[in-house]
């Protein structure tokens, strides 16, 4: 059972790497931000699997914090973006 969960976690880590590739290569800021959004959600999924594999339900609290922080990160990104647009005009 835990080997299967381990395999799932490794593949999730690979999707994290895929998200990092988008962060590096993303032409616009919006690309980098959506990659960060995907990294946040992938981490939440990873924490869920870890809470089963290691039988530690405490990890779900960490996943909850990650879910909320990912949303706040996007809002901060959009908020700072708005100010710069005003200066540009």
């Amino acid at each position: 059972m835990s080997e299967v969960l381990l395999l799932l976690m490794v593949v999730l880590l690979l999707t994290l790497l895929g998200g990092l590739v988008r962060v590096v290569r993303g032409p616009s800021e919006a690309d980098r931000m959506l990659a960060a959004q995907l990294l946040g959600t992938t981490t939440v999924a990873l924490l869920m699997l870890m809470s089963v594999a290691m039988a530690m339900p405490r990890l779900l609290d960490i996943a909850l914090v990650f879910a909320i922080l990912a949303a706040i990160a996007v809002v901060c990104f959009v908020a700072t973006g708005e100010v710069r647009d005003h200066d540009a005009t």
């Binding site: 616009s28 800021e29 919006a30 931000m33 959506l34 959004q37 959600t41 939440v44 869920m48 779900l60 996943a63 909850l64 879910a67 909320i68 990912a70 949303a71 996007v74 809002v75 990104f77 959009v78 973006g81 708005e82 647009d85």
Partner: peptide, 24 residues
Amino acid sequence: LIWFFVVLASATSGHLIARHALRS
């Protein structure tokens, strides 16, 4: 609860990112 938060977060942030990309 986690899934509900993530659904809310990714729905609104997807919209915010798209609007930001459209605007700039």
